[in-house]
Design a protein around this nucleic acid. Sequence first.
DNA 1: GCTGTGCATGTCCGT
DNA 2: CGGACATGCACAGCA
Length: 845
Amino acid sequence: MGSMICMNELCRAATTSSGWKKGWGFKSGGFAKLCYNCGSAFENLVFCETFHLDESGWRECRACRKRIHCGCIASKYLYEYLDYGGVACINCASHLDGHSVRPIQIPGDDLPNGTLGSKSAQPLGIENRMDENDIDRRRVMRFSKPMETSEPGQLFQTPRNDMNPETILPIGNVSTCFSNLNQQPIGASLFGKPDNERPSQGVKDMYESINQPSLNFSLSTPIGTSSSGQQPFPGGDVEGREQNKNSPFQQGQKTRHILPKPPKPSPNSCSESNKGMASQARVARPPAEGRGGRNQLLPRYWPRITDQELQKLSGDLKSAIIPLFEKVLSASDAGRIGRLVLPKACAEAYFPPINQSEGLPIRIQDITGKEWTFQFRFWPNNNSRMYVLEGVTPCIQNMQLQAGDTVIFSRIDPGGKLVMGFRKATNNVDMQDSQAPNLPNGNGSAETSFSSMTENFPNRDRTSNDSVNWQVPMSEKKKARNIGSKNKRLLMHADDAIELRITLEEAQELLRPPPTAKHTVVVIEDYEFEEYDEPPVLGKRTIFTARSSGDQEQWAQCDSCSKWRRLPVHVVLPAKWTCSDNIWDSRRCSCAAPDEINTRELEALFRVGKDPKRRKLVENNEDCEPSGLDALATLAVLGDNIGDLGEPSVGATTKHPRHRPGCTCIVCIQPPSGKGKHPPTCKCNVCLTVKRRFKTLMLRKKKKQSEREAELAQAKDQVETDGVSGTELLQMNHSENEHMKDSENERNSNEHQTEVFGSGKGQLDLNCHPNRDDDMLVEATAGMSMTSLVNAANIPLEYLAQNGLESLGNSLLSQAAAGESGGHHPDNGFVKTADAEPESKGDEG
DNA sequence: GCTGTGCATGTCCGT
DNA sequence: CGGACATGCACAGCA
């Protein structure tokens, strides 16, 4: 090493390699090399005083009044920003025992105790100024003291040294106060921590770094206030509290560290920081201390309101506004029921005490000045209480709030009047991340709307460009979001619901062993079970088809090009599969390879094997006749294509015997008025199917009726013209039938006719598919033909009687006799019985 | 049948 | 594991 230049710009003295001293740390991990003098000044903490005493940026320690040069790299470890604004020198800060200072973020690797986590967890853009510099280390250790209560891996950050905290950001987090803090309403530039320094991943850091001290504060003994005496909610003067150096923070009060889980990194956080909307940064404020003297609100309820908003609100209402808590509206809260569940701690802290379940009416003013009266009450719940505000619907509606939006309860000071503000959810934090409400400092980009100061949420989409991932239409996002901090219940989008139309059996078919499949075989009652440690995964759905030769084959669709590829039957695919994974067909192992089958074949393929569900259901139908409801459900699931499934078995008919009380078929379970669970406008599959069926059947009925009339007229004409009697017709048909001597066919035919008669009598099946109805009707029509009638007439009466169709047999015989004697067309009577009448009955059903 | 009310229950989260 | 809370549900009152 040769000579080097001192990095102190005011010095720039050349020094020898042996005479230099380490200075401040670099972001890159190095450190400034200073000449001996400058280094000594740095070590002795008088670097700033020595070299840029005349520069701007000098401030006083709130506690000891010692001058501190802020925003300077050389002195950046010598002070700490105070949560209520101002700075404190490191000595004073350390005296606060970690309760009032925001620990700075430093690379964990630099810390001997590693408390702060590792470098790998270091957010981008965090300055790594620390090195093996002993002095720095010593300083760091002093700073690290407050952090000892932090969770491992917590990171904290410091403002950039090139910024003057006084001018960068008027806001920061609320924390402990110092005696000389003024009594401004909160939000008035009392915050010194630059929030726009947020590293890109910094929600967590931001969140934790900000909240840690705040939390401590909020749990601390209230400090003397100017207004507590008159407030119904003592301690609600966070912003005005004073604290001297020997603050109650040192009174050994046991603090309860409420550190909510760090929120998921959100693109929003990046964008927010990128945009540097410092004054708009949403900061969770430790709420005013409530009635209980201790405030143990979960940070998720800490009001997040920007200083600008707060200032404006305070100005609009001409009062100091003290944000108390906020709550993200759940679906229940925003629903028609008109009950807003209040967080218990909030209710007990900020609302008047109630002993009766009925509670008491409470007046809350909205930001427009309008007063609302709600019933503040509670329900006993698990040996506890559940507090609700009843009658909030008008207010919610007035504010046009919906689930996911946030209501913010504040207090006007003095007077203690409750004020209700709100913040509409946006498509980013509030909307997207169910954790967002848990993000007290949340940096939510939502616009707090105290309506008189509302900005119409111009930023609703302001971060949408920040990440492609967030460029989902609002409506989509709304549907997809999880509402409420605790609401993890699935809100299913319609598309998702479609995706979820999968039977249990199908799901079973798709289950695949976990990727790291190591299983043990367990034998239970002679059955071997494969036992896996990992849960199964869902595999790709494939289609099985059979060739004419009888060979089975499997088809899978490429996730990339959507082409269908033929696979061996035994192959089990993972959830994601593309052509490149097609190791069984080298010619089609690329998406570029042409389709193996043309469209028509594809359709046929689908018809046969597309939906295992259908196969299953059809199989099931063949096995046993489902109940009306099952059948309808089947139809609902299968839709109109059930007719494509091949020849429906007559035995698989879903014909409904009769709609009686207690019947659970889809027709009977419909409320007569169509109200209830299936409103008239219901578009559910079941309702649509029922409606469609009904419409189709009615059309068919009309058509058949007219056909029959025409046929009848024609037959009459013919009878009159040809002089052929009905008996002759019967005989003719009988002789015709004699030609069909195939006994098997005849038997089948007879049985079939019997079925048609039986099922057709007095019944209309709303549950069956029109296509199949068609078949049935065709058969019924066939039954109307002379041949069928003769066949029916040939059925021994004993047989009919055995099948419970004696009346039919008698009817037929009498009709035949009548026809013989009076020339009455037998068709008439049959048609009436088998078609028209039942349909009308069925329609009624 | 609809709506409101009170309570029960399941889930999640903090300790 | 217990508390908090979101939500479901039964019941009552009313139209």
